[in-house]
């Protein structure tokens, strides 16, 4: 046995459970559950399912907003146009790159910050938590502007403060090259959303039973061993939920790119592509098809997280 976790005691059926699986109590609990969640569910259907269905329907048409009379049914043509266009695949690549880089860095940083918040002195804890949370409270557009101004060649301070770094000079045009632009975009995203991931991980850290830590200590485990063998295995569910939420979020990146480069130099993400077709070109059909494909990507990510990594959302809730 290399890791120490609590046995999944609550998951096993009690011996006295009735054969058909549902007790009266379970049934009434289920009913109460529906009553409590029902209104929220109905609202979700209204504000989420309805637009998704409408977008899917419109994606089958050739429909320009300024020319509604010439709307015509074209079947899956829009999807064919998108999937055979190199711009789509380039955007997928950029989006995947930003997602992988930001989520990986955020996970490590967020875990560090969560540990700091847990271990901090009781008196310092509220101040520390507030300080760590501030970037998350900043509106994305504002944070994008702040980072853009910092790296701007005319008004930014980065070019004069960091000239000692290799590759940085007074004349470095951060937004004029694809990779430097993506670097700044990733930095802004990481700065802004690390607090979110660290909050979720903090909740996970709090769930690790102190008894296991003490038992490991008694057995002579080092700090490092306790981290890898006790803490992390016990918060696997919390880590997976944090990763899932952030990945879904990161895959829809838009604001930062819109502000910083407006998609120039090959920095367009999939959401940006959807914006270009729907809002700028007014091609509702083509744009809806991009949105539907983006939605399918997000569903695929969520599905693979839940099935492949076996993330149990219920366990993360502490059931």
């Amino acid at each position: 046995m290399t890791t120490t976790t609590l046995p999944p005691g609550k998951k096993t059926e009690p011996v006295s459970a009735p054969k058909n699986g549902i007790t009266d109590r379970a049934r009434s609990e289920r009913k109460l559950g529906w009553l409590l969640a029902g209104p929220a569910f109905a609202v979700m259907l209204l504000v989420t399912a309805y637009p998704i269905v409408q977008a899917t329907y419109e994606s089958l048409f050739d429909y320009r907003l300024t020319d509604p009379e010439n709307r015509s049914f074209v079947g899956l043509t829009n999807y064919w146009v998108i999937l055979t266009d190199s711009l789509w695949w380039q955007s997928i690549g950029v989006t995947a790159f930003i997602t992988v880089v930001t989520v990986a860095v955020e996970l490590v940083l967020g875990f560090g910050l969560a540990l700091v918040m847990v271990k901090a002195l009781r008196a310092l804890r509220p101040v520390l938590r507030a300080a760590i949370l501030i970037p998350y409270a900043v509106i994305t557009v504002v944070s994008a502007f702040a980072w853009q101004f910092a790296f701007d060649i005319n008004s930014g301070f980065v070019n004069s403060w960091f000239t000692w770094l290799p590759g940085v000079s007074e004349n470095t045009d951060w937004f004029g090259d694809r990779w430097t632009a993506l670097l700044v975009i990733c930095l802004a995203e990481i700065w802004k959303t690390t607090p979110f991931i660290s909050l979720l991980l903090l909740a996970g850290l709090a769930q690790v039973p102190e008894v296991l830590q003490e038992a490991a200590k008694v057995d002579g485990a080092t700090r490092w061993q306790r981290m890898w063998r006790v803490t992390i295995p016990n918060m696997k569910a919390a880590i997976m939920v944090a990763l899932l939420f952030r990945t879904l979020d990161a895959f829809r990146v838009f604001d930062t790119i819109f502000i910083m480069t407006n998609g120039a130099n090959g920095t367009e993400s999939v959401s940006f592509l959807a914006y270009r077709q729907t809002i700028a070109r007014l091609e509702i059909g083509l744009g809806s098809a991009v949105s539907v494909l983006l939605f399918l990507c997000v569903v695929a990510i969520a599905f693979s997280f839940i099935k492949l990594f076996k993330v149990d959302l219920a366990q993360a809730r502490g059931e």
Partner: peptide, 14 residues
Amino acid sequence: GPAFSTSNEDSSAT
């Protein structure tokens, strides 16, 4: 200048 590919009306006036 070094930032020509990102220069607009404002930055070129600067």
